[in-house]
Nucleic acid binder design. Structure first.
Length: 93
DNA sequence: GGGGGATATGGTC
DNA sequence: GACCATATCCCCC
């Protein structure tokens, strides 16, 4: 099972997985974090093929405009998830 | 500061 | 070689 993920994807998932709840990061931020500065697009590629969208909150990754770009399950869902997390965080707080 | 268009860049299929 | 969930630069207002 264990799909043989590329070293790049592995790093991307590890970083994205560590993004705090209710927070959002940019593709560039992730790229630099994994040491692939400039590979912002490659980050999106890896997330798109994300085999575990459950443990990898890829919906927390947005572009520099602070606006959610695309999403494997639909940009609409992504926006919804972000809003939901925001509300949840506010409620718990 | 913001909008639109074009180019550069990195990784995977 | 082509594709892609971006980023950045240039121009204009």
């Amino acid at each position: 099972m264990a799909k043989e993920l590329t070293h790049f994807e592995k790093k991307v998932y590890t970083v994205v997985k560590n993004i705090p709840f209710g927070k959002t990061r940019t593709y560039k931020w992730v790229a630099e974090k994994i040491g692939a500065k400039g590979a912002s697009r490659a980050v999106g590629n890896a997330l798109n093929k994300n085999p575990f969208p459950i443990i990898v909150p890829c919906h927390r990754v947005v572009n520099t405009s602070g606006y959610p770009g695309k999403y494997a399950f639909g940009a609409d869902l992504k926006k919804k998830l972000l809003t939901l997390e925001k509300i949840t965080k506010c409620c718990l707080k």
